Simulated assay, not measured.
Amino acid sequence: MTETSSLVQPIVLLVDKNDPAGHRDSIVAAAIASTSAYAKTLEPGAERDRSWEQWLSGRFTKSVRRADLKAFTKLESDEAFQHESHVVVGKAKAMAYLPSAYEDMPKSLTRLQVSGTDLPDAPLTAPSRRRSGDPIIVLNGALGMSTGKSAAQAGHALFAWQLNRGEMDGELTSIRLASTDLIIASAEEFETLQTVAASQLIVDSGLTEIDPNTATAFVIERP
């Protein structure tokens, strides 16, 4: 399936060459941004754009694009094409938008690169609060996925977790999203932790980086 055949949710990740954020912080920031954009529509009194329904009926396609500091700052203040969520984790910053057809995205987004997003590994900035039931994204570290690819797969897993919580839990879900944690698991850990998964296993279609039908991510909940 190409980008033009269905709606895609654009996610923009800050990639500052002079002061790069860590791989893990960037993955979590992008995943939270993607899911928070929808979770906000579940809060009391919130309105939901019709594009969400069309996107939800498809493949939840996400496009993680990288922006340097100048481009990211410009997008932050763009009143004509406003982001739905803005997330900061450590030095990492990510913004997520409404799902849209690729041809309807502004050039400020489509000209941003998807490939080549790989940031230095560093410990995850710890969530300010950790509570029972908070989501922990488990990524298949044996695959060696780039930061961009990892962010998209983590976003799929966290979104699946949010949907499993149900339509009536939007406000609580938004609070818990801010406490999202991450495990980059070995092949053995990845298989073992699946026994306590709190979301569906994400299996990639293999369009980039990895083979088709490869298991990439899921979410567990903090005990």
Rank of each mutant, 00 (worst) to 15 (best):
A96G: 06
Q82P: 08
R66H: 01
T125Y: 05
S186T: 15
D118F: 10
E209C: 08
S77P: 07
D211P: 09
T180S: 04
T35A: 03
H23T: 01
A96E: 06
A126D: 12
A80Q: 12
A157L: 03
R222V: 13
G144M: 11
W52K: 00
S150G: 11
D121I: 10
T147P: 05
A178W: 10
V219L: 11
L172M: 12
E47H: 10
S174Q: 14
G148Y: 04
G58Q: 15
Y102Q: 08
S34Y: 05
V64G: 01
F159M: 05
I210Q: 09
L193V: 04
A80V: 14
G45T: 03
A101D: 10
P120I: 07
R176C: 14
A92S: 05
S199A: 00
D19I: 10
T110R: 09
P223E: 02
Q54F: 08
D134G: 06
A187T: 15
L177N: 00
R65C: 01
S199F: 02
L177Y: 05
D16G: 04
L143N: 03
D19H: 13
G155R: 03
P106Y: 03
E191G: 06
T208W: 06
P127G: 13
F218L: 00
A37R: 02
Q162I: 11
V114G: 06
P44Q: 09
D49H: 05
A37I: 01
Q194C: 01
G141A: 08
N164C: 08
S57N: 12
